[in-house]
Amino acid sequence: MQVKNYSVFDIIGPRMIGPSSSHTAGAARLGKVARKIGGKGILEVTFILYGSFAQTYKGHGTDRALVAGVLGMDPNDENLSNSMEIAQKDGLKYEFVLSEDETAHPNTVKIITRNEEGQQSEIVGASIGGGNIMVTEINGLAVEFTGEYPTIIIRHLDKPGVVADVTHIMDEFQINIAFMKVFRQRKGEDAFMIIETDNDVPKAVLEGIRNLADEILHVYLVEGL
């Protein structure tokens, strides 16, 4: 196993709202990923909680952290504990459903959002400790990324040449790719490209990818830890 190159701020950090890095900070980050995938103007959100999340969410403020994330807050936002009130004021409807289904990781949540255009999106992810997360599903398609690095998520049609076009743009902007994975449902259909980078990703990169070809359906960015 490769030894992680721990930064001084992995040890004295992260900055966060308590009480638990896995049940609170990680939950907020999962909520924020759902916000990115859900698109502009999210009006409704349903959280389906599994395992330890389902059992102990109240005591750890997991519910408030999830709502805060969907509102766009970071795990260290001091308004995190007031997220329910802020959601009510902003007109975001939320609902929590407890599931007894078994999941691979005990702290798992499925987040279903509906935006002002009536578009429904969903992600499944787990909080895996120390504020770290693992997203395992986007809109029913199995994926895998941690959000530790800035992550570009590209939904596209599975056609030859798309991957090369995207990496060409990354090269133009001198962005180093740390990890890259491609997931698809069936040949020629919907696919996801997950690109984790070493550098922050400027807006121009996302615009460039978006305008590449009709095969590119959506481009999202999840900022790193």
């Binding site: 004295i12 709202i17 308590g18 638990s20």
Partner: peptide, 18 residues
């Protein structure tokens, strides 16, 4: 106590030992 009341802290090295 601030951590347990959803206040802001710096994990050092964890939230529970901050």
């Amino acid at each position: 106590e601030v951590n347990a009341s959803m206040g802001q802290i710096v994990a050092a090295p964890t939230a529970g030992s901050s």
